[in-house]
Amino acid sequence: MTVALVLLEVMPDGALAASSAGLLAAADQVGEPVAVIVGPADAAEEAAGLGAVRVLTADADPDALTLPVVDALAAAVARESPDLVLASNSVESRDAIARLAARLRLPLAADVVGLDRDELGIVARHSAFGGAFTVEGAPTFGPLVVTLRPGAVTERLDAQPVVVERLEVVASGVPAGRVESFSEPAAPSSRPELRGARIVVAGGRGVGSRENFALVEQLADVLGAAVGASRAAVDAGYVPAAAQVGQTGVTVSPRLYIALGISGAIQHRAGMQTATTIVAVDKDPEAPIFAIADFGIVGDLFTVVPHLISALEAPKK
């Protein structure tokens, strides 16, 4: 059985990052998923629960950026000779895996949305230009290094028995950046994460203010949805940048996307147009969002949304 190494990220609270389950499931298409966890090994059990057949752990200086993870991954590759090295296309993992590919001189496929194996080897699938094109690629030979778009793979694996092995890591001595201080997000949200969410309710400049944005959040909570935003809403300070959907924000592909006061500029559509069902509420009948909306309402969001919230809550009472 070939090995598919999977880098898992541990969050500050000690739990694995939300991307972990999808990473292990994607890796399973190629080989036996073997997890690599750099830092406290407590999350190994969780990794096995998500389908890792073995968990390789390594200690690391938590204040050194990226390089301890690269060194650990290099040790894991030397030990396991994997066909695949997979990590999330997140800010942290992406740096480590990029440096690994450069160090080991391995081909890298970035922002992949799915993996397969055919008789010739691994095939990676990408979604280009806002989902308008699908591209497939493969390495000419040897192992492939891949970053996976968070939320793109929704399959889940069965739990495995917990098998933990220590990695012997020789530090490369390459100079690293330092983390001088760290602050966790003010209030960890109880809402679903934007990436991979089943329903997304997003607000734009039309929402008008940070205070008004509570209306968007209220609808999201009624639907059990994640909260998204346009760049204009982020730039205006209504919401943190992590909520931005679009070209330079998060790409989502939910079952339902509700756009409130978002005109639907091409760069916004690039991040949400593969949603199964799109709903839009906008005052301007000419807003481009209506060109891709399955259900469009020309109207004032401040009257439509409160009505919608009562209509949705009514049957529950």
Binding site: R105, L106, P107, L108, A109, V123, G131, A132, F133, T134, V135, E136, G137, A138, P139, T140, F141, G142, L144, Q273, T274, I278, P285, F290, A291, I292, A293, D294, F295, G296, I297, V298, G299, D300, T303, V304
Partner: peptide, 22 residues
């Protein structure tokens, strides 16, 4: 080793659905 493209395909564009005025 290189990473090479195997295939490219295009997704049909999305069509508009219902649009009502409140």
């Amino acid at each position: 080793p290189r990473y090479i493209m195997l295939s490219v395909s295009e997704r049909p564009p999305r069509a508009a659905g219902v649009k009502i005025t409140d």
